[in-house]
Amino acid sequence: MSEPFEPLIIGFTCNWCSYRAADLAGTSREKYPPNIRLIRLMCSGRLDPTFVLKALAGGADGVLITGCHPGECHYLEQNFKALRRYLLLRRLLTQMGVEPARVRLVWASAAEGVRLAAEIDRFVEEVRRLGPLNWPAVVSENGAEMPEPATEVTA
């Protein structure tokens, strides 16, 4: 290995709690690793599992989903829907050979900049331990893009 593995993480935030927690982490100069890149949604309820699959298929090593704490959703209870989708998605990902730890849901209120930074820190380290996901290679190995014959199988 020439360079140490630096996991690339996509984070989804809601506009009201977790994005503001990220803002607060910034204004309070909390440090966390630069491996995460955030996408703002209005609500964790907007999180379409398609986004997570696209992120993983497109080269992300992990996905962090964040939203308001249950009971504190700006849209009352849409984060419950996010939780339900996340728990089902995790089962699907396990079947697809993706370690469930690569996709995590974290609740962070607008006041929890420190907590969000710490969660990002922990998540980056966990994905680093899991190693690269490298989905394009999973598919391209005799996959859709590159129909090379597979390695031989002998009895």
Partner: peptide, 27 residues
């Protein structure tokens, strides 16, 4: 909030400013 956009099984609901196209392009 976009919860219905994310839920529609037919892709028949869209949401301005946070459309699938916008989010996926950003991704």
């Amino acid at each position: 909030c976009g919860t219905c956009v994310a839920a529609c099984p037919s892709g028949a609901i869209t949401g301005t400013q946070f459309s699938n196209e916008q989010v996926l392009a950003q991704l």
